[in-house]
Nucleic acid binder design. Structure first.
Lengths: 221, 221
DNA sequence: CCAAAAGTGTTAGTGATACACCCATGT
DNA sequence: ACATGGGTGTATCACTAACACTTTTGG
């Protein structure tokens, strides 16, 4: 039996890409080169192609914007209100991604004149319902950081406990007690101390690495 | 600027509807009356209409199947693999709903020859990737029961602590200690003891009601 | 008075928090 | 020798888990 073709909504994937730079949690935003919301900042995304899985579409967009592969990526929520896009019915499957503190080459594309990292503390005016999406992503990020091991996704392979603690302090925007933090992290038995030490000024810190493979996230509830 | 119309995926909402009957957690399934997967059981759902919000579509489907309104409903996940529907590209936004133990009038529709409650312990063969969706919903249900107050969504307005405990025991498929359970629940200060007692054989149990309005779910982490 | 479910406290162990000083290195 | 971040232990408190008997009612 063949079904008549009813009009269909458009489907996009948008990706809230977080990273940590300096003392700030940053989100990647793009400036729209086309209407609607021309010259307004937005969460990067694009239409889902017919022949590509949703998650693959998200990965493609992520790589197009940042040049980065193999990072933590998770589906966030699907936004499907009728009136959220003035052009017509658009359903957006939002993802969020965490990038380690590496140099990314941000790229402009046909629809986008500029891409930049913004502190989540003071985002610019955002197109569509993207502020809502960003807030939702932040909530989920904090939650995941508390109850899983995704924090490691922000770090390079080798890192110090102080670096790790700083990730938590930045994301939650508060200080933690050094001894308690270390006790708790080490008691989870997720880290391996490696011989190497961090070079640089002052007393060198021990480097650790995550025992599990990259991308393997553990619930530590 | 008008964008050319590219081919678009179809979008459906499917709803995993749970309730508790007797000593079993049940899920509502429908038998498909049309191809593909004709006469195979499936999670109820349907196409999203252009002029209706996603969540509204889910509520409509829910009411069509069960005649019930105002129940707990939450977006679960969006399934968007290319090959998940043999008819072509279909993206499914899955929801899950919890029904109190009430008499529902299950309804057949044009696409559905029958609707029935199945124990989640032994579901029949399911169409499409619906087994995956069901498993995902179960996982989320258990999680939510542990860390929020959705358990009350399974109960009528007035209930006994034993009824509440039984919900937990059924969903987690294990026994809990009566004293510890009561202590914990009561310490959350969510329940109000009401004067009424449960009538029936043996010692009558105190009835309680949830202090918050229906649908108000609280994280109790 | 018997059957059945309701109701109730204490103890031990575990994990969370609060808190301050010495150490290793580079300059 | 000093400035800077690295590294460590203990005591208290709150929460969790284990465990068994008495009470109330209907029949």
């Amino acid at each position: 039996m063949k079904k008549r073709d009813y009009p269909k909504p458009s489907v996009t994937v948008d990706i809230v890409i977080f990273t940590i730079k300096g003392d700030d949690l940053k989100v990647l935003l793009v400036k729209r080169a086309i209407k609607p919301f021309k010259d307004i900042w937005a969460i990067p995304g694009g239409f889902v192609r017919m022949e590509e899985d949703l998650e693959k579409a998200a990965k493609r967009e992520l790589e197009e914007e940042t040049g980065v592969k193999n990072v933590y990526l998770e589906q966030l929520y699907t936004f499907g209100e009728v009136k959220r896009d003035p052009r017509g019915r658009v359903i957006t499957v939002a993802y969020f991604a965490l990038l380690p503190q590496i140099k990314t080459r941000l790229r402009a594309t046909a629809d986008v004149s500029e891409a930049r990292w913004f502190s989540v503390k003071k985002p610019p005016e955002l197109a569509f319902d993207h502020l809502k999406i960003l807030k939702y992503a932040l909530k989920r990020l904090r939650w995941k950081l508390e109850y899983t091991t995704i924090a490691f996704s922000f770090l390079p392979e080798k890192f110090t406990l102080t670096q790790l603690q700083k990730i938590y302090e930045i994301v939650f925007n508060k200080k933690f007690d050094k001894r308690n933090f270390r006790k708790k992290i080490l008691s989870l038995d997720l880290l391996e101390k490696i011989k190497e030490k961090k070079k640089g000024a002052y007393r060198p810190a021990s480097l650790y690495k995550f025992k599990k493979k990259i991308g393997e996230i553990i619930e530590v509830l």
